[in-house]
Design a protein around this nucleic acid. Structure first.
Lengths: 246, 246
DNA sequence: TCAAAACTGTGTCCAAAGGACACTGTGTAG
DNA sequence: CTACACAGTGTCCTTTGGACACAGTTTTGA
């Protein structure tokens, strides 16, 4: 459970210092053989290959030719490791200033860029949830999306809400189409097991049964509705903005 | 990592049998002292109180006054436990046949009911992601949402996409407002740590800085944009349906 | 009636996980 | 040149999910 105690606060401060480069380098002692970025890189490589749940201090240390405990000289624990991994993996935030076509074109471009960035790291959508300290680059992505709404009649709350909803939408559809497959839609569409269950209980789920009978158990788009939902969301935003303008 | 091997398939079959009540009761041997439902209930209680990450076989067994290994007589492992927990916690799917006002009113009601059901089990949004075998009740929720779109000119793919996007939206906004707090919005709005970082780097994030300055660092709605996003989504769907109709 | 078979719950054991802590070696500051 | 600060290693502990053998219990078939 995520509590908000004093210990959590201190841990967050440490993570923030790590992510934002606020730690002064040591003057005395042996040369560090590793760097935080190097550790993060090795960890990202493991997560990209074998998934986030295959990530352990041991494996990262082994990949770097070092003992597990050596990593604790660079970060306080595994949550810090995940934080620097995210910060490394998200990449540089996009500059949408050159995108022509107003807020809608900017936001659409943003969504596609975000999806593409996350596609290279299938574990990323699942890792960027919950209580977290964001690094400068990840915050840059948020800034980029909020800035895309410059010039619209939306107030601050609405802009943040819109951006948050957009993030959530990309995250959800992305995490489904890569790492885990959604049980009732997705790349493989319906899981064989679920398909059998639905076929055996068709009368109990008439609407679903009809939908899947309609297209030979291949219903649901390949991208888990990412494009569909994105267009609906932007349409809805456009409607609000138009109402607000007139 | 989620693989789709033969072992996974068998495991899914076992989970399906567990969830759909397809196991024949044993004839010989001692009376079982527990039930799957009872185990699930104890586990749900623990997760509700201390969160899903505090859940372990040991704790569930202890809550039932039994050894950890006894649970393995009723389910194959922890993933099975989570499956029956979900099936228990989602509750009975709603019947929206009595809702007047067409698809939009039905879907809106559905979204609120889903949010309310998930609110009672903060771990639920985070648990219902990824590759999974759904139980009869959880599938009933999907059926309910798909059926809400009966009568619209949307085809099967679009209906599934719409429902999936809606599920994702509720899940995302819900998981943020309960268990983990979003770092840049949410109930407590900006985390103190993030707030300090943003204040110290305002020139680097002008759009965000302006948004938070606008309302005294209390930007972002209390429900993480759930209502906002829901209305935008429904507006977008309505637009599509209107275009399709005319 | 009685033994074999099937089943429940317990106790023991294991590997892997995150992390604490003491220790050895190394480099710089006074 | 000495003392301190730091890097990396090795050892230890707790908790986790799970395998497996065992003892006790109930039903089935001979």
């Amino acid at each position: 459970m995520v509590r908000a105690g004093a210990g959590e606060r201190d841990a967050a401060q440490g993570t923030a210092a790590l992510l934002w480069g606020l730690r002064e380098p040591p003057s005395r002692g042996p040369r560090p053989g590793l760097t935080v970025a190097g550790i993060a890189g090795a960890a990202v490589g493991i997560a990209d290959t074998d998934g986030l749940e295959a990530l352990s201090m041991q494996r990262v240390a082994a990949a770097l030719g070092v003992t597990k405990m050596a990593l604790y000289r660079y970060m306080a624990g595994k949550s810090d490791l995940e934080a620097v991994m995210i910060e490394l993996a998200v990449g540089d935030p996009p500059d949408l200033a050159g995108v022509r076509g107003g807020w809608r074109a900017r936001l659409e471009e943003f969504a596609r860029l975000l999806a593409r960035a996350w596609q290279e790291h299938p574990w990323l959508p699942g890792a960027t949830v919950g209580d977290r300290v964001m690094g400068p680059r990840e915050l840059g992505w948020v800034e980029s999306a909020v800035a895309a709404l410059d010039g619209t009649p939306l107030d601050g709350t609405e802009r943040l809400d819109a951006v948050f909803v957009l993030f959530g939408h990309i995250r959800t559809t992305q995490s489904m189409s890569t790492a885990g497959t959604q049980p009732w839609t997705g790349d493989k569409r319906l899981t064989p097991v679920m398909h059998g269950l639905l076929a055996a209980n068709g009368e109990r789920y008439p609407a679903l049964h009809q939908v899947f009978a309609e297209e030979g158990s291949l219903a649901g788009s390949a991208d888990n509705g990412r494009e569909f939902g994105l267009l609906r969301l932007l349409d809805g935003l456009e409607l609000l903005i138009e109402r607000r303008t007139s």
